[in-house]
């Protein structure tokens, strides 16, 4: 128990410091802008949606929560490591009894908590808009928001991994590339099946399993049309997302340990 505390306390302290930094950067303004934009969009676009108002409001709301969550992670996270490194803050933190793994975990937890809070506020505003526009709310909408948070968690882990060894610009670029590839990864297998030889199929299979499969975490179609998911789906993909995140953070920690910090 003591050993857990010894790890958890520095991690949580760094996480708190990260959250405070993001609050100073006024990230919660994003939630306010979202609320305003969603309300305006739902009223302005409804007449254009001819017969599909409820669907359009649900689509826009769910897509906006996911897109803004991912954008926040990339914008905030990519530069945070380098800012601390260039200001000498990183060296002074690591001079204290804080290991590099604890630092990485603290950064990750801080980012996750901050962005999750923004996404939660956005989800509440979205529900309010749904209620005021008489759009039916059902359980799949909550599931979709939950899986969007998990997706954001995986992207944050990737961002943490890249920021441990590259510049902010490259970190943002790699994260966005992996995000795009992660949504297209299932096509790799189909592509290899149709066009590839044995070697290409093997490479495609490796690519498919190594890249994150974000399509697992996208149940927006089911949420919009209130379609059921297979039994055990949410549990299964949650476990997948958890392990993928932990493996990526572990790799980030290993790389960060081997880096020279001045």
């Amino acid at each position: 128990m003591q050993r857990v505390d010894r790890f958890a306390i520095p991690t949580l302290t760094i996480a708190r410091y990260v959250v405070k930094g993001y609050i100073k950067e006024r990230i919660f303004l994003v939630a306010l802008i979202f609320a305003f934009a969603l309300m305006v969009a739902s009223y302005l676009l409804s007449p254009l949606a001819v017969g599909a108002q409820g669907k359009v409001i649900t689509d826009i709301g769910l897509a906006a929560i996911s897109i803004l969550g991912i954008t926040l992670v990339v914008l905030l996270g990519a530069s945070s490591f380098s800012r601390e490194r260039s200001g000498g803050i990183l060296a002074s933190i690591l001079a204290k009894p804080v290991s590099r793994i604890e630092f990485i975990m603290g950064k990750y937890v801080g980012t996750i908590v901050s962005v999750s809070a923004v996404m939660l506020i956005m989800a509440c505003v979205f529900m309010l808009v749904m209620v005021t526009s008489n759009t039916p709310i059902h359980g799949m909408i909550f599931t979709s928001v939950y899986l969007s948070v998990l997706e954001m968690g995986m992207v944050t882990a990737l961002m943490t991994l890249f920021s441990s060894f590259t510049s902010p610009m490259l970190c943002a670029f790699f994260t966005v590339c992996i995000f795009v590839c992660g949504h297209l990864s299932k096509n790799l297998l189909e592509f290899a099946e149709v066009f590839g030889g044995a070697g290409f199929k093997l490479v495609a299979q490796i690519g498919y399993y190594v890249l994150p499969n974000f399509s697992f975490l996208n149940v927006r179609t089911e949420a919009v049309h209130a379609l059921p998911l297979p039994d055990g789906y949410v549990l299964s993909v949650s476990i997948y997302a958890l392990f993928y995140t932990l493996v990526v953070l572990f790799l980030g920690g290993v790389i960060f340990r081997s880096r020279d910090i001045e």
Binding site: L48, K55, A63, S66, F214, S215, R220, V224
Partner: peptide, 21 residues
């Protein structure tokens, strides 16, 4: 469908607006 990544519902809405217009 492929290039809209995970946001194909949203892209469908945009094309629907175009169809209605």
């Amino acid at each position: 469908k492929e290039i809209s990544l995970g946001y194909r519902q949203f892209v469908a809405d945009l094309v629907w607006f175009s169809a209605v217009q």
